[in-house]
């Protein structure tokens, strides 16, 4: 554990809590892509199956359980409790265009051809692209509420901090997880355009982000 990794995990947690609280307090999930949230729930579900097979640390177990619980709570709020506010007309990204290549890749490129390893690899590849329905929705409607952009900022920050973590671990421990690093870098690139808009429009404009 290093400071980048810890800060990354905290950013990830903050992002998820921001989104959950926003939906809970406003009793609305307008502007939120339910598809992205289902994909994230799927990411955690397939990655954290090792909760049943290996014990890494108390921290590891607690965080995994929290991420799983919060992601399912978010999906529940969007599709059940506040489904009347769900903007399904603008949440039209074709998820199968992500799932098919991701499933294919996880069978081709993995550390071991075992069910758990293939599912772990699937979760890593899927996480890299799971935010695309949300970004697509913002592009389609041309705007995002500021709280939604804060959510995306912390999610992107988490990815950027994980890259710093990997640089640190490579130099200090000789640790290099090629699958995680390559997909993590790809994932972070998706946020670069958003980071630019976030700084230039949301932080300076203090309002919701609208695209030109």
């Amino acid at each position: 554990m290093n400071i980048f990794r810890l800060a990354g995990d905290v950013s990830h947690l903050v992002a998820i809590i921001i989104l959950l609280l926003k939906i809970w307090r406003s009793k609305s999930c307008a502007g939120i892509s339910g598809k992205s949230q289902v994909l994230f729930a799927l990411v955690f579900s397939t990655r954290y199956l090792d909760l049943f097979t290996v014990f890494v640390s108390v921290y590891n177990v607690v965080m995994k359980v929290v991420f799983l619980a919060l992601s399912y709570a978010t999906v529940y709020l969007i599709y059940m409790r506040f489904r009347n506010s769900y903007d399904s007309e603008n949440d039209t990204f074709r998820v199968e265009f992500l799932l098919v290549p991701v499933i294919g890749l996880s069978f081709l490129e993995n550390y071991a051809f075992t069910p758990l390893e293939i599912l772990w690899t699937f979760s890593i590849f899927l996480e890299a692209v799971a935010i695309m329905p949300q970004l697509f929705m913002i592009t389609k409607t041309g705007e995002a509420e500021s709280i939604t952009t804060h959510y995306l900022f912390f999610l992107g920050l988490y990815r950027a901090l994980y890259i710093a973590n990997w640089v640190w671990r490579y130099h200090m421990e000789g640790f290099f997880d090629q699958i995680a690093v390559v997909s993590g870098v790809v994932q972070t690139i998706f946020y670069c355009d958003f980071f630019y808009l976030y700084v230039t429009r949301v932080l300076r404009g203090k309002g919701k982000m609208s695209l030109p």
């Binding site: 990794r5 990830h12 990655r47 640390s57 590891n60 550390y111 772990w120």
Partner: peptide, 10 residues
């Protein structure tokens, strides 16, 4: 180390 059973990151 083949990376298997070694996924200590979240």
């Amino acid at each position: 180390d083949d990376g298997v059973d070694d996924h200590d990151e979240l």
